[in-house]
Design a protein around this nucleic acid. Sequence first.
DNA 1: TACTAAGCTCTTTTT
DNA 2: GAGCTTAGTA
Length: 767
Amino acid sequence: MDEQHEADYLKGLNNPQKAAVLQTSGPVMIVAGAGSGKTRVLTYRIAHMIASGIDPFNILALTFTNKAAKEMRKRIENVVGSEAKNIWMGTFHSVFAKILRFEAGKLGYPSNFTIYDTDDSKSLLKTIIKELKLDDKAYKPNVVLNRISAAKNSLITHKMYQNADELTSYDSVSGKPEIAKIYNLYAKRCFMAGAMDFDDLLLKTFELFTTHIDVLNKYQHKFQYVMVDEYQDTNHCQYMIVKKLAAVNENICVVGDDAQSIYSFRGATIRNILNFEKDYPDLKVFKLEQNYRSTQTIVNAAGSIIAKNKDQLEKKVWTSNQLGEKIKVLRAVTDNEEGRFIAQSIFEEKMKHQSAHTDFAILYRTNAQSRSLEEALRKLNLPYRIYGGQSFYQRKEVKDLLAYLRLTVNHKDEESLKRVINYPARGIGKTTLDKIQLHASEQGVSWWDIVCNAEVFPNLGAAKSRLADFATKIKSFATMLATNDAYELSMHIAKSTNLLKSLYDDKTVEGISRYENVVELLNGIKEFVEDDSSELEKNLGVYLQDIALITDSDKDDGSDDKISLMTIHAAKGLEFPFVYISGMEENLFPSQMSTGSRKDLEEERRLFYVGMTRAERKLTLSYANSRFRFGQLLPCEPSRFIGEIVNDFIELDKKAFVKRSDGDKPEFNRFNKRKSESTEKSNLQNKYGRTNQKQTTRSLPPPIVNFVPDDTTEIKVSDVVEHQRFGKGKVVLLDGDFGNKKATIEFDEYGKKQLVLKFAKLRFVKN
DNA sequence: TACTAAGCTCTTTTT
DNA sequence: GAGCTTAGTA
C-alpha cells in the first residue's frame, strides 16, 4: 500500500481512533460514545483492511438499518473505490435473507419464499385466533405476536415453547394459556405458505447453521472478518449467529455504546456488550470518548442524565467544542400550542442564522405526535419530511398490487391470496371465503389448493367458475416469470387485473393520489430493472425480496431542503445543528408502558440521551400541560427528565409564559357538524386505506395558574392549593432557591408530594 | 354480494 | 382522532 495514502486518512484521527483502525485482526470491541466519530472509524478500518490486501469478499459488515449500511458503503467507496461493492454489507435481516435464498431448500422452504411484514403476521394470527375460537379480547394479535417474536429472538422454536414450563405457566397466569398452540399453528401456517416473518429470517439462519455444519463451514470460511455496528442493539439470536460465524477466525469487531441501547423491546440485551469480554479473553478494547458533534452544554447535560443509570460501562464523554447556548425549555398549554411554539422558533432561528431547513429536526417519542407539529409547520409554510410512520409500502393500493406480485411468485402465500381474491370485486364474497376457510382448516390444505380445485369441493356453487378463472389468471402470470422482467410483468398484471384502470377512473382527490402511488410503485420497479449497478437478476422474485426489508426512512431524498420529523429511535446515527424534542411529559416520555421497572426507566433515559446528543448547536425541549389522546384532552405532568437536568444547563423560554389572547381559542363548532361526515371518511378509509390529509381542531383546556420564575404570585406555607392531577392539598414546606423553588404539599388524596414550582400546575383554593 | 351507517376500541419504539 | 368491525339495507 501507498505509505503516503495511509498517512492521509489516518491524519485526521485521534489516538484511540487510530489504534482502533489499525487493529484489524483478532477480537476487538470499540466503545464509541455519542458523536465520537464511530462511522468514520469503521469506514477507515474497512478501508485499511482492503488497502492491506484483504479481499473485500471476505468481509462481512452488519448494521441495523439500511441507511447505515448504505452510508458506510458510500464512504468506503470514497476511500477505496469500487472494490467496496464486493463487501457483504447490510442489515442483519437483509444479509441473512440473502443467505436463506441460497440455502432455503435445506430447510424445506422454496427459494422464492415470501417475507411477511408485521401486517401479514398480525392478520394471520387473527385468523388463527378466530379458527381456534379463542376470545379475541384476551388474545390480541399484537400481544401474541410480541410474545412469539420474543420467543424467536431467544431461539425458542414452537416445539420448544410447548415444553417451556416457565413460558407456558406465565401465559396461563396472564390469562392466555393457548399461546403455545397459536405459536405452533402460526409456524406451521407460515411454513405451508412458504413464508418467513422478520424474526424467522434470524431464527431460520440460526437453525440452518446448527443443523447443516457444512453450510456453516462454508460461510465461516467466506467471512474471515466480521464487523457488527450498534452491537448494543443485538438480541440473543443475532449474537449466537455472529458468534458461530466468527468461531473459526475470531476476527470479530463489534462497535457499540451501552449508553445508547434502546431496542430491548426487540430483544436487544445490553448483556451482549457487557459480556463480550468473557467470550473473548484476548479482546482488545478501544474507547472513543471525545465528542466532536455537540456543544459543551449539550454534552455535559446529556452526561449528567445518563450518569443516573446504574448499568453501564465506565466511560467519560467529553468535548473541546465551545460552551454554546443553554438548553431551552418551552412550555405550552396544549399540544397544538406546542407545535406553534416550535414552528415559530424554527422560523426565527432560521432567519437569525440563515440556516437551511435541513439543519432542523423535531424528535418525538411516538409517531402519533407528528400530527400537531405538521399542522403548525404547514401554517408557517415550513417544508418538512416525516421519516417512518406509515410507509409507502403499507398503503392499501400499493399493498394490493404487491399482493398480486407476491402471489404470482409464490402461489402459496396465503395473506396475499386473501387480499386480492376479490379485489377488484369479482363476485367472490364473504360467504364463499368462509367456506374456503372451513375447507382449508378441515382438510389441512392451503387456500390455493382449494381455489385451484374448486369443483371438487361441495357448497361452493356459483363461485366455482369464478375461483377457477382467478386461478387461471394467476397461473398465466406465473408463466411469464421466466421470460419477462419485473417491470413488464408488473405492468401486465396491473393492467390485466383492471387494478390500474379502476384507480384511474376515480377522479376524487384521494383517488388521484392512489393512482399516483401505484404509478410510483411501477416506476420504482422500472428503476430497479434499469439499475445496472448491481448484477442481480431483474425478475420479479428478486425485486420482491429487495423491497421486503426496505422501510420508508431508507428512501433517500436527502436533496430536498426540508425539516426532519421523526421518532428518537429513527434519529439514531444522525445529527442536526438544531434539535427539538417535543412531548417531554411524564407517561409519554418516559412512556407509561415502560416506567414499571428500573430497567425500563433506564432505557427511556438512554433514549432521552440519544435524542439530546443528536443536537450539534442548540437543543430545545418542549412539553404541553394537556394533550389530546384518543379524542380526549388529558392533563400532563412535565417529564421527570427535565427535572433531572442540572439547572445550570437549562433556560426557560419566557415566550411560553406570556398570557394567551382570546384569539387563540380553537373552534368548537366542528363537533356540531353532521355525524355522517366522520362515518363517510371512515368508510372511505376502510375501502382505500389511510390518506395523507389530516385536518383537526382542538378544544381549549381548563385554565391553570402556574408559578413561573417571574411570577409575582407568592406561595406560602399553609396555603391551600389545587393541583391538576393530585387535587386539593396544603403547602407544608418550602425550600430551594429562586427558579428552582420546591414545595412539599400534603394532598388530601395522594399524601405528601414535592413539586418543583416552575413546572407545577397549581391554583389557589379559597378557604 | 356490495355498500352504508353506527359503534367499539385503541396506549411505544423497528427490521 | 383514527382504524376497524358489525348490523342493516339495497
